[in-house]
Amino acid sequence: MEEETKRAIIMEHYENPLHRVRKDNEDYIKINTNNSSCIDNLDIYIKFNKDIIEDITFEGEACAISISSTSIMINNLINKTKEEALEYIHNFYDMTNGKEYNEELLKEGNAYHDIYKQGNRKNCATLPYRGIEKAILESLK
């Protein structure tokens, strides 16, 4: 992915994040996810329909990297099975750790390909993933 494309994707999802809405109804599970080392702080709302992730939304305050990453993640996880979602999440972690990963699977998530070079910002990109992973794992128990 070109540097400029990555930038454009991140800025687009930061300025116009998708699914940024609070959900108070009971079908949604709410999880908070935050970075102990900075001030990013998001609530993620997730609705399962048996094995399928039917909907995800979020709200909160965070930096451009976190907000855009959340928007992209949600876009790519809705309608996936829990297992598919976990696969996506693990591929994203692999990418942010500078390891090999399935590029095709991540789609716009590839915009954070070089984030591992910026130490502290890796946590911003993975912030929503850590929250959603926890929720999925809990639901499988």
């Binding site: 900075c38 001030i39 990013d40 965070a62 910002r121």
Partner: peptide, 21 residues
Amino acid sequence: VFSQDVAYFLNKYNICVRAGN
């Protein structure tokens, strides 16, 4: 602009400021 993003921006120029509450 979120305060943390300002701090990250300045950090690129070796300027240390704090963002947060």
